[in-house]
Every structure is written in C-alpha cells, then in structure tokens.
C-alpha cells in the first residue's frame, strides 16, 4: 500500500513538473513575456529596465528555474487589472466555484444513479427508453445553451429563480457559502443543475451499463437463488459493484466539472474562478491566467490521487493486491 502510494505520489509530482514546463513554454515561449509580465501602459525605458530586472535576457532554462522558485513561494505574479497577487485573487474566488462544482456532482449522483438503476433493471420499458434518450440529449446539449434556456424559462418566463449571482451568503469555516441561505440556494439551483446535466447523463449511462452487466453475472443469479428479496439483490449485490466505477468516474469528473464551470459561471454570472479566468482572458490579464492554470493542474493531480485512494478503499480486490505489492 505504501509502495503503491509512493509511486502514485511520484507520478503526480511528474505531472506537475511536466505541466509547469508546458505552462512556462506557453507563456514564455509562445507569447511575448514582456506583454505578459509588464503592464502594457509602461513606456520603453520602464520596459527595458523591467526586462533586465525580470531576467528575461537570461537563457530559457535559467528563467525556468527562476519561475519555479517563485511559484514554489506562492508568487505567480500580480494581476494587472486588480493589482493584487494573482494567486490570492484566484483563491478568493475558489470557494464559489467549488460550491458550484460539488452541488453539481451531488445532483449528478442523486439524479443519475436512480435513473440509471431503473433503466438497467427494466431495459425494455418505455420509461427506460425515455431515460436513455434523455441521456443522449444530456450529452449532446451544449451546456451554455441549456443555461440560456433555463434562464429563459425559469427566470424570464416563469420568474421563479434568479438568473445571476450568488445571492445571500452565510459564513462557515471563515468562507462565504450560498447553500446556507434560502436565497443563496435559489441562486445556486439553476447553475448547479446546468453544470450537472452532462454528469447526470454520464452517471445514468455508467449505472445502466453496470447494472445490465451485473444482472448477467452469476453472483447476482446466485443471490436470487438464495431467495433474497429483489430489493436486497438490487441495492446490495448489484449496487455495491456498480458504485466502484461510478464513484471513480464521478470523482475523476470533479476536475472536469471545475473546468467546465467556466461556461456555467459565465452564463449565470457566478462569481467564481471560471468567471475570473474568462474576464482575465478578455482583459489580457496573463498573470492570472498562468496562476489559474497552475492551480487547476495541482487540483487535478490531487483529485486523481484521491480518487485512486478511494478506489482502493472501495474495492477489496485492489486493496489486497496493494498490500501484497
């Protein structure tokens, strides 16, 4: 187990290093670093002084070392637009994005798992066919357009839900959260559902495929031959086996959900990291872009690692093999 964990940690470290090189080349190689690191308002004298001060006349590898050293100290540059450290700016917006992403994941499992289970148990019923057709729609519908339609229906037409912002928030653990107030929840509902739509389809398909596969397995037939109630067969024997892939994929999708919240946050003006990054791109606020990218990379690596560990806990076969290794 420890060996396995160490190897995974080492791999994770490798990914972070590889991505930092990519970001570095992206920023310093493709783009003109002067544009990125120095305010466009600066005059020629200032620029040259800055180039020397920033070491931009040094060879590329030396610059990379310098970039990494700064990054390790938490210095990923200052935002031009806000004149604040980029890292701090992003960390401030992170709770809003995480709240949205987690709400979406919970919705995805809460809606997708029962529907997928039903569709898997009764594959030929009309309701199941409707569920599967719905899931193809969920895959096909572009998130942003669904968001617009939701706003049109629930905010403009029916007037039930607010169309933008986080609404009232309450403090918990020193951070402001929307889900703790009724008003905040109303604001959270549409964006969370919008972001969840793709994952709901994914969970439905995974669950259905898993159920159909499990139902053909001898162990399910044996469980039925033992005279267990259909409920116990479904919710213990089938579900426990399906949870492994569903949890893995859902967990792995958390990163994708955070990334995709860029779109939802833009549609619903949700003040998270995604909205910040789109605003920064439009303002050419490149230090923020770089900082965002590095944070996302780190987040991904951590999520992948956690999912692997969770997977090990859930599946006794993997657990034992890990111990033996």
């Amino acid at each position: 187990m420890t060996v396995y964990l160490l190897r995974r940690l080492f791999q994770a470290f490798g990914v972070v290093v590889a991505m930092s090189v990519l970001v570095f080349v992206g920023v310093y190689g493709i783009g003109n670093p002067v544009d990125i690191l120095i305010s466009p308002d600066a005059d020629q004298m200032e620029r040259e002084r800055a180039i020397r001060a920033l070491g931009l006349d040094r060879p590329l590898w030396e610059q990379y070392v310098w970039f990494v050293a700064n990054a390790l100290q938490g210095d990923l540059g200052r935002s031009f637009a806000y004149n604040e450290p980029a890292l701090q700016l992003i960390l401030q917006r992170m709770p809003a994005t995480l709240e949205l992403a987690f709400a979406a994941m919970i919705l995805a499992v809460a809606i997708g798992l029962p529907l997928g289970l039903y569709a898997g148990l009764h594959p030929h019923s009309p309701a199941s066919k409707a569920i599967m057709a719905g899931s193809i729609l969920g895959f096909s519908l572009p998130t942003f357009w669904v968001g617009l339609m939701l706003i049109m229906l629930f905010a403009v037409h029916l007037g039930w839900l607010p169309s933008n912002g986080r609404g009232a928030t309450a403090e918990f653990l020193g951070v402001q959260w929307s889900f703790l107030t009724a008003n905040g929840l109303a604001h959270l509902a549409m964006p969370a559902f919008n972001l969840a739509l793709f994952k709901i389809s994914l969970v439905i398909r995974l669950t259905r495929a898993g159920v159909r596969e499990a139902m053909l397995m001898d162990y399910v037939k044996f469980a039925r031959a033992k005279g267990l109630s259909p409920r116990r067969v479904t919710f213990v024997h089938v579900l426990k086996n399906i949870l492994i892939p569903v949890v893995t994929v859902t967990g792995l999708e958390l990163g994708g959900t955070i990334a995709f919240s860029v779109v939802t946050e833009t549609v619903f003006s949700w003040p998270g990291m995604g909205k910040l990054i789109i605003d920064s791109i439009n303002r050419l606020d490149r230090p923020v872009m770089v900082a965002y990218l590095m944070i996302i990379v780190l987040m991904f690596v951590v999520i992948n690692l956690l999912v692997d560990i969770l997977y090990t806990v859930l599946d006794p076969r993997v657990r034992i093999e890990g111990k033996a290794a």
């Binding site: 001898d218 162990y219 469980a223 024997h237 086996n241 859930l314 006794p316």
Partner: peptide, 11 residues
C-alpha cells in the same frame, strides 16, 4: 452454480 469464481459477490 458451475463457476465458483463467479458465484460469490466479489465486493
């Protein structure tokens, strides 16, 4: 059942 590797639920 025939295949003992498959009849018991692995999890």
């Amino acid at each position: 059942f025939q295949d003992p590797m498959m009849t018991l639920n692995p999890v």
